[in-house]
Amino acid sequence: MKKLILTDIDTLIIRSMGIVSFISFFVGGVVAIQTALNMENPLLPRNLMGFATRQSVILEFAPTFISVIMAGKVGSYITSSIGTMRVTEQIDALEVMGINTYNYLIFPKIVALLFYPFVITIAMFLGVLGGYVACVYGGFSSSEEFIEGIQMDFIPFHVTYSFVKTFLFALLLATIPSYHGYFLKGGALDVGKASTTSFVWTSVAIIIVNYIITQILLT
């Protein structure tokens, strides 16, 4: 079991770091530039760019946007890998051997995705860093102004809210794609269809849970 969990941590978490880092850095930069370009009034303080970037990244971009991307990357991987095992009778083979297939196939993925908040932590850091680089090196604000904005009116509960969401999204990312793969019927074409369906339903579930948690925790 330990080996399975470590393999899944490597596949689902470590190997997602590249794409998550890349997207986070550049979207953080775009958020900062968009904020800067929309600040036409010269009376608005320049530190607002840092503030807006931090709020956008921590509250929504890192936990929600990255989770939707992960529904595509990790979710379709889980569905297709379990689904392929189903159509090639590998799951039947496990059952004939007397192995608990839920325990063997799904549980390690749930445990592995408990490390998902680490991915989101890095996404938050790189998103803000991307904003900093875009603002400072793009000539929209000074380094001091941006850092002042990042520190301005910081509410620690927003980070808690963000990680509560992340934890719930991790459970959705592990369970919905596993369900679509495990209960797959048909052949190779159906594996592809199930991957798409699982991405759609995981994304829908993430958006709905995001709305409910925001309503509960922030209002």
């Binding site: 392929t84 090639t88 009778e89 590998q90 039947d92 083979a93 004939v96 051997m97 007397g98």
Partner: peptide, 20 residues
């Protein structure tokens, strides 16, 4: 007894069902 029976059964599947 079912767990024990499972261990007493070997199965060769049509498509071999080997773990890729």
């Amino acid at each position: 007894e079912r767990i024990q029976l499972r261990q007493d059964i070997g199965m060769v599947f049509q498509g071999s069902a080997l773990f890729d």
